[in-house]
Design a protein around this nucleic acid. Structure first.
Lengths: 200, 200
DNA sequence: CTCAGAAAGTAGACGCTGTCAACTAGATGA
DNA sequence: TCATCTAGTTGACAGCGTCTACTTTCTGAG
């Protein structure tokens, strides 16, 4: 199995890179460390990725893929408003359950995004899920009083969700002395306001 | 002037560090580069900061101070709702005008926040401005129908603002093909919704 | 089957980095 | 005056990303 073994190191590199990030933080990700853990030479990774940034981009792309799957894994019922509410909760749940992945997606500054097309594609796909769900809503209700394009609603919702998710996992919460209960209240309030803003 | 000269290098280090970050990105900030630019030896910075992270924390603290000043520089009128609206715009304006500073404040992962008390204090002060403004609002209107503590409103508002600011300066906007006009519309919509949520 | 060539992996080197240790010159203060 | 503290210097060390050159292994056309 040549192709299988060929790809196996590439995949193993991405997985080990994530493990290293998990243990030491993204800024201490070292290709040599990854290679050492996999028992290969320090140059082996360069046969599969042109640079350290490209491995990092692959890790981020995998996070986006997991994120998209998490968002769309919820069963969709006939009520698109309920669907959207569930998707919002799923969004926040992902950020809470997988804070590292979330930070990697939205906090990682790759020098040039266009240099990592796979990562970009995964990110676009993840956003399309939210966008499409909003599209369903307005389609199912032709008299929906939203005048601006769906895109702007998507932006608003994504903004609110992302802002809350970021805040909840930053040090700010401990700085403000927020208990878990208060966090839950904040989530519930935000979701309610979001629904009110979108609902007819 | 011993004390003056003593402090001058410390201050110069922080300024030059910011310049380096500006040019090369925060992950390429190098103490040796900073020292080189200031014409001192590569060990001189260590007489003023214990490590690279501590210089970075000082840079971030300065960003928080500038941010707080920007937020509170707006003249406050007698209408606290109008004040809040202006402060929200000021928030977004800062993020747009000084994206690097904004990212440094909210995207920089320092290993241990408690190790940098000055930075933490600046961050808390910045948030207190928003919090106090909300406090004014509820105080001036005793019948204000907000049942939950001010803190939760502050969290909601900060979430929405931070989310939008982050989104606006990420690559997502170009990915979605957002024009500047559409960005402005998104800002206006968010501000309107925010006001509606808070207003009685 | 053979064998040229591509692909995967190894080894060594270079310049860069953060940081530790040891040293020097100058200011401070009892 | 002289011991001490402070700011700054030089030198060293290990680790890093990445370039070049080498070997091994696999592949696919003749």
């Amino acid at each position: 199995m040549p192709t299988k073994k060929k790809q196996s190191l590439k995949q193993a590199l991405v997985e080990q890179a994530f493990s290293v990030i998990e243990e030491k933080g993204v800024e201490h990700l070292s290709l040599r460390e990854v290679a050492r853990r996999l028992g290969v030479s320090h140059q082996a990774p360069y046969k599969h990725f042109p640079s350290r940034d490209h491995i990092l981009a692959a890790v981020v792309a995998r996070c986006f893929a997991e994120f998209a799957q998490h968002l769309s894994s919820r069963p969709s019922c006939n009520d698109p408003f309920d669907d959207l509410h569930k998707m919002g909760l799923a969004y926040l749940e992902f950020a809470q359950k997988f804070p590292l992945q979330y930070r990697l997606m939205f906090n990682t500054a790759l020098p040039d995004g266009t240099a990592h097309p796979e990562m970009l594609a995964q990110a676009q796909f993840a956003f399309s899920i939210l966008h499409d769900k909003l599209g369903e809503m307005t389609l199912k209700d032709p008299d929906h009083p939203i005048r601006d394009p769906v895109k702007h609603d998507a932006i608003y919702i994504w903004s609110a969700l992302h802002g809350l998710a970021s805040l909840m996992q930053s040090d700010v919460t401990s700085t403000l002395g927020l208990s878990n209960d208060e966090k839950a209240v904040a989530v519930e309030r935000l979701m309610r306001r979001m629904s009110l803003s979108i609902a007819p």
